[in-house]
Computed example of a mutant assay.
Amino acid sequence: MLHHLEDTVPANPTAAELLATVEASPAAVGTHDKDAWVALFAPDGSVEDPVGSRPHIGRAAIERFWDTFIGPNGIAFDVAHDVVCGNTVFRDLTIATTMSTGVTLHVPMHLRYDLVEVDGALRIRVLRAHWELAGMIGQLLRSGGQGLLAGAKLGPQLIGNQGIGGALGFMSGLRGVGAAGRQASGRVLDALGQGDSDAARAAFVPVPRLEWGTDGAMSLEDFTTRVKGLRWSKPIAAGHTVTVTVETRQGRGIAELDFTGGGRVQNLRIFVGES
């Protein structure tokens, strides 16, 4: 469902309108305006941050998410590129989070915003943050005394706002395809970029869903023709999904590969701007 929300949106917003809604999110974070940030979400909106952790669904849960992860910290967004594809905005960026002890963590990320119309206004239906929790924890542990102190403070803060279940749900973000998924994604994208559908086929489930932009599902042969010449960088494994920055003949985009528990790719969609 998360991958096809644009099919349910009755409005036809422009790219500028979609980007303006998305840009309001880091603006509210920058001014520590909790009410403005929470109001950007649809009533049944959700935040999955990082992907693979337990989602925060509905206003109360999203408010607790703010109290736990945004409110106590300083957060700066360094956006390299935005991709508007249907009613999805995918941001390619790095986030710098300065914690209460002064330690700053730099986290490579892909942020996916799926937007819907609610009472005539665009709202965020789903926010999915693709970043690697294990890498962030490692960065924190390598940050010396300030990092260790920040980690010691985060545990009680997490349990206090989210409860034991919520804390465990957050830590479930450590599970996923990891390095093996990143490597498999690279092999698939290399094969597709070289126009070798037979080499790519071995990585997929028998009937994968392959999508380019908003064009819908297509055969592996047609998909390979479309993406030939593709180059890739910045693979991020979060949960059972790997996102990758890609350069295509149509321009820069983001690939999203969903894996089965057995390590095969079941969905591959390349988000590119509409021409």
Score class of each variant (00 low, 15 high):
V103P: 15
S46D: 03
D258Y: 05
H81F: 10
L192M: 03
D114R: 06
G261D: 10
T214K: 01
D119L: 07
E48C: 15
N87W: 03
R252I: 13
L133R: 02
L230H: 01
G262Y: 00
L168D: 00
R91A: 09
R187M: 06
V265K: 01
G239P: 14
E221D: 12
D198G: 09
A199W: 00
T21G: 13
L174M: 10
T97H: 06
V188I: 09
G30P: 11
D82H: 15
H106L: 14
A15G: 13
I236S: 06
S25Q: 07
V227W: 01
R125S: 12
A28I: 03
G229H: 03
V103I: 15
D92Q: 11
L210A: 01
D35A: 14
E117T: 14
T88S: 15
D7H: 09
G216T: 01
A255E: 07
D33S: 06
L210T: 00
G144F: 07
V29F: 08
G195Y: 01
D222W: 00
G30I: 05
A129I: 01
D222R: 12
T260M: 12
G120Y: 00
A80E: 14
T98L: 11
D49N: 11
R249D: 12
H110N: 11
A80Q: 13
H110K: 11
I137K: 09
E256T: 13
G195S: 03
P108I: 06
D35H: 04
V272M: 10
T94S: 13
E6D: 15
L192T: 00
Q250M: 14
V242R: 03
A11C: 15
G138K: 06
L105H: 07
D258W: 05
A129M: 05
R201D: 08
D198E: 13
G165R: 04
P156M: 04
V207A: 14
D222F: 02
R269G: 04
G74K: 12
P26L: 06
G145L: 15
Q139A: 14
R123D: 03
G253K: 06
G45A: 05
I95F: 05
V205T: 12
V83P: 11
P235N: 10
G229S: 06
R175K: 05
L40R: 02
A129W: 00
G195M: 04
A200E: 03
D82P: 14
L148S: 10
V205G: 11
E221C: 04
E256G: 14
G163R: 01
R264W: 00
T94E: 11
K153T: 01
R123L: 05
A200T: 04
S197T: 03
L189A: 01
A60D: 15
L18P: 05
G58P: 15
I70Y: 15
D198R: 11
A39N: 13
T8D: 14
V84N: 07
R187N: 05
L115W: 01
R175T: 00
E256S: 15
